[in-house]
Amino acid sequence: MAVSKDDLMVHIKEEWCKGCGICIAYCPKKVLGFNEHGKVSMLDRDNCIKCGMCEMRCPDFAIFLGGKENV
């Protein structure tokens, strides 16, 4: 069953992020950035198009597109 993008959001597991910056560099909408700990952070959730490219290129499973109920 196809899941609507409205039901999805980007989740970040900060404790697994190693701060390589790959997801930030290739986010097509540039909605990601580093936080004060040098880890990835969602800066502009409203403009996230939920393409999932951050998840595909994250080497550490630290960012992913999942259901909103996972929050």
Binding site: K18, C20, G21, R57, C58
Partner: peptide, 10 residues
């Protein structure tokens, strides 16, 4: 950090 191997494993 930044090693491509995690991307391949995923």
């Amino acid at each position: 950090p930044g090693c491509g191997h995690g991307i391949i494993m995923s």
